[in-house]
Design a protein around this nucleic acid. Structure first.
Lengths: 141, 141
DNA sequence: TATTGTTATACTCTATAACTATA
DNA sequence: TATAGTTATAGAGTATAACAATA
């Protein structure tokens, strides 16, 4: 019998293995997803990935070294740099998307109803999991 | 609207934050869970944690340095070392367990029915997530 | 003065390969 | 010779603190 904990880990492992098939880490894939429709700044990426801004520098360095992304100066504020997908990065992201989702509209390929049910249960589990019953919803949550 | 992916990440983050409250990493907590009722060998721990055996050495080193676990020679095979919780480690594990689960029998505090439903959906999602529809169930899965 | 991004530092986790001591 | 655990190495991710350039 699987525990929820184990299943979440399996899900995570699955995501990491898939990233590896494309020569990427899970975190690198997470960056790429965020660049499909927007060109976030370094700081915005840190927020979305839930890590410190200082980590983004190295993360983007590694992706830039492979010509998958590039830094573009923001015209309205010389301090901020926006991250864009290169043509190569766009191709790779597209390939990943079709391989991961197989044209299915939902993240996991579940039906819409199943996905709603899953989200509801998982969210309830996460809330209940909070140490003090009163939600708490800290930081990025 | 949350995606399943984001929720899984939130779950993971939550687990890591809780580990941090006890001055531990998620992986260190995972080791401790495995020592509550058994005293696995180094290699067995590697299997359960799904990582290379060489990582266990450092992982156990760090926990041993904090007097939470100790290595015990296996009497029947001088090559293997079994990992035990120290009294301090037992106390900490007990404290974590009650803080994490609040006496609830399920991992997340969900009802048994909810948990079954969640497991079913999450497992179906994981299966569907497999690149080729035909299950595949690679390695540790 | 505050903010954005970078650098420097240090730690954990990860895998690979070579090594030891047992079996 | 095979196996269990260790060591050495290298890379990725993480946070903290200090820093430069810009607002």
């Amino acid at each position: 019998m699987y525990s929820v904990y184990e299943l979440v880990h399996q899900w995570q492992d699955l995501a990491d293995e898939r990233a590896k098939e494309f020569g990427l880490t899970g975190q690198q894939v997470a960056v790429l997803w965020n660049l499909s429709r927007e060109q976030p700044s370094m700081g915005e990426l840190a927020d979305r990935l839930g890590c410190d801004a200082s980590n983004i520098t190295g993360l983007i360095d590694r992706l830039e070294r492979r010509e998958l992304v590039c830094r573009v100066a923001d015209p309205s504020d010389a301090r901020v740099k926006r991250v864009h997908l290169t043509p190569t990065g766009q191709q790779l992201t597209k390939r990943m998307r079709s391989k991961f989702f197989n044209g299915s509209p939902s993240v996991a390929g579940l039906s819409a109803a199943d996905q709603r049910a899953l989200l509801k249960l998982l969210r309830r589990a996460t809330d209940l999991g909070t140490t003090d019953g009163a939600s708490g919803r800290r930081g990025k949550l």
